[in-house]
Amino acid sequence: MKTPEGFLFSAVKCGIKKPDRFDLGLIYSPNRLTAWGVFTQNTVQAAPVVLGKKLIKEETLHGVVVNSGVANACTGEEGIQRATKLLEEVAKGLGVSLRSLLPASTGVIGEQLPLEKMLPKVSELVSNLSPERYLDFTKAIMTTDTFPKIAYRSLKNGISILGIAKGAGMIAPNMATMLGFILTDAKVSKDTLKKVLPKIVDHSFNQITVDGDTSTNDTVYMLCSNQKDLKNWEDFEKACLEVAQELAYLIVKDGEGASKVIKIMVKGAKTKEDAKTFAFSVANSPLVKTAIYGEDANWGRIFAALGKTTIPFDFEKVEIYLNGIPWVKNLQVITDEEILRKELQKEVVEIQIKLKEGKKGFEVWASDLTEEYIKINAHYRT
């Protein structure tokens, strides 16, 4: 894999939560970057989100400073000041403007950034930049993640697209606690990014759910180093979407305690919004998710999840398919229970729901719900 030209990476161990793990990362380009961002829709927004929304509008940007361990959310004016101080010190070390760096944080809500641990590590952070250190950066943004999440595509003319993300819990659309970074050496205008990035996010990160909780810190940044002319826009946009979708899939696969990926495909709704509501209602249902985990073909839970949306539909017409195998028709199971159980044992379970109300559809990727999810989140701070 060849990282996009014009990008350097670094990470250091500050001991924010654990003594021997990367927890402060930097993406930097000496070139002027074109950048845009998409942020959480949660009305409780972390300090880095508040700052990021302002700084992303700057014409001269050089990179992103990211920490894990502390979300810097619900921290008031002091949280803004501490985030700004961190950006200021990193900017000094790089010899760039404070306003040319974007912030991002992930971790425990309600705690201030421990600058006494972080600032002494800034000189090390800025002096060890390298295009090869993208994996260290990826490790620095992990919290309950069990593996780094990286996706890559390259085009025929040499343009590269690198995607890096973190996320395993507190994942729901609008956006999913997740952070995502899409980097490319293609030449792209800011106006174009403003149009394209939200569309990419809608068809990737906004189609996943782990637990139905929308984070205070969700951020996706797309950064372009403008090193190479873009000749085929359709191929480029397709590759960017593939990178985002691969990262979204990895987040669901790594859902806290998850043992399976569940693909919910709703077809035949009256409107796309109806289809989306139905799909997420099923995907977020603890009863459906635990049944899939337990390999129990309890189809009644799917019907209940559809009905709780309060959207009118004729449930007697609904057909359900499991991994392409007919499961329910006319409110009757039409396949042997043992066959269905074997399908539910697979790592990827596809549930297709045909409503027969219209022609619109929507697909959501979710994880199952296990005892391990409760253990992880019951002891998240300890």
Rank of each mutant, 00 (worst) to 15 (best):
72 N>E: 09
158 G>C: 06
169 G>M: 11
313 F>I: 05
122 V>I: 10
153 R>P: 04
132 E>V: 08
185 D>R: 03
310 T>V: 12
379 H>R: 09
139 K>F: 14
122 V>T: 03
147 F>W: 04
292 I>T: 08
217 N>Y: 07
261 V>F: 12
331 L>A: 13
70 V>D: 05
257 G>F: 05
97 S>Q: 11
298 N>T: 15
27 I>D: 07
263 K>R: 15
24 L>F: 07
10 S>E: 02
317 K>D: 03
99 R>N: 08
222 M>R: 04
357 E>F: 01
203 H>T: 08
283 A>S: 13
298 N>M: 12
3 T>C: 04
259 S>V: 08
311 I>L: 07
231 K>N: 12
303 F>Q: 07
15 G>V: 00
224 C>K: 01
357 E>M: 10
75 T>E: 07
359 K>A: 10
147 F>L: 09
253 K>E: 14
337 E>N: 15
201 V>P: 04
91 A>G: 00
193 L>V: 08
59 E>P: 01
245 Q>V: 06
193 L>D: 03
218 D>E: 13
37 G>N: 03
258 A>L: 11
234 E>D: 15
250 L>F: 12
273 E>F: 06
127 S>N: 14
378 A>F: 05
82 R>S: 06
32 R>P: 03
40 T>W: 09
5 E>M: 02
64 V>K: 02
36 W>E: 15
3 T>D: 06
364 V>Q: 09
207 Q>Y: 04
40 T>S: 04
97 S>W: 04
360 K>C: 09
222 M>D: 00
370 T>F: 09
326 P>T: 05
108 V>T: 05
52 G>Y: 02
250 L>T: 08
260 K>T: 14
41 Q>V: 13
195 K>N: 14
137 F>C: 07
4 P>G: 03
125 L>V: 06
8 L>Q: 08
272 K>C: 03
132 E>Q: 11
16 I>K: 00
226 N>C: 11
266 V>Y: 01
272 K>R: 13
168 A>D: 11
270 K>V: 11
180 G>S: 14
232 N>V: 12
21 R>F: 08
242 E>I: 04
32 R>V: 15
314 D>W: 02
186 A>L: 02
102 L>H: 02
350 E>K: 13
40 T>A: 02
373 Y>V: 06
263 K>Q: 15
215 S>F: 11
156 K>I: 05
18 K>S: 09
63 G>H: 03
181 F>Y: 15
186 A>V: 08
375 K>W: 00
176 A>T: 14
219 T>L: 07
41 Q>H: 14
381 R>G: 00
328 V>W: 00
239 A>T: 04
143 T>P: 05
79 G>F: 01
193 L>S: 04
144 T>Y: 00
321 Y>D: 14
63 G>M: 05
372 E>F: 06
80 I>N: 02
173 P>H: 15
40 T>F: 05
316 E>V: 12
200 I>R: 00
190 K>C: 02
18 K>Y: 06
40 T>K: 10
72 N>C: 11
345 Q>K: 15
339 I>F: 13
199 K>L: 15
374 I>W: 04
223 L>E: 06
65 V>T: 03
3 T>N: 04
168 A>H: 01
317 K>C: 09
298 N>I: 13
370 T>M: 10
21 R>W: 02
187 K>H: 11
34 T>H: 06
